[in-house]
Lab assay of single mutants.
Amino acid sequence: LTVHVGNVTYHFDNPEQAEEWAKRMAKKYQGQIHVKDGQFRIE
Rank of each mutant, 00 (worst) to 15 (best):
V35L: 12
I42W: 06
M25V: 07
K28L: 12
Y10N: 00
W21Q: 01
V35P: 01
G6H: 11
A22S: 03
F40K: 02
A22H: 02
T9L: 10
Y10A: 02
I42M: 01
K28C: 15
T2V: 10
H11L: 10
Y10W: 14
P15C: 15
E43P: 03
Q32T: 14
H4N: 07
V35G: 04
V3T: 01
E16W: 11
G31Y: 06
K23W: 07
I33Y: 06
K27T: 12
K27R: 09
I33A: 04
V3L: 04
T2A: 10
F40A: 02
W21F: 15
D13Q: 09
E16F: 11
G6S: 05
V3K: 00
Q30P: 06
A18Q: 04
Q39M: 07
E20C: 15
G38N: 07
D13K: 12
E16V: 12
V8A: 12
I42H: 04
R41A: 07
E43H: 06
Q17Y: 10
T2D: 06
F12Q: 00
W21G: 00
I33H: 02
A22T: 02
I42A: 05
K27H: 12
R24V: 13
V35N: 06
R41G: 07
V8E: 08
F40T: 03
I33E: 02
A26R: 02
A18T: 01
F12G: 00
K36G: 07
F12R: 00
Q39T: 07
Q32W: 05
M25Q: 04
D37F: 01
E20N: 08
Y29I: 07
L1I: 13
V3W: 01
I42V: 11
I42Y: 05
K36A: 10
H34N: 09
P15M: 13
E19F: 15
K36T: 13
F40V: 08
Q30G: 15
T9A: 11
Y29R: 00
G38E: 05
R24T: 11
Y10V: 04
G6P: 01
G38T: 01
Y10S: 01
Y10Q: 01
D13R: 07
A26G: 04
G6C: 15
R41F: 15
Y29D: 02
A26N: 05
K27E: 15
K36F: 11
E43Y: 08
L1H: 15
M25H: 03
K27S: 12
A18R: 02
G38W: 02
I33V: 12
Y10I: 04
N14K: 12
N7F: 11
M25G: 00
K27A: 14
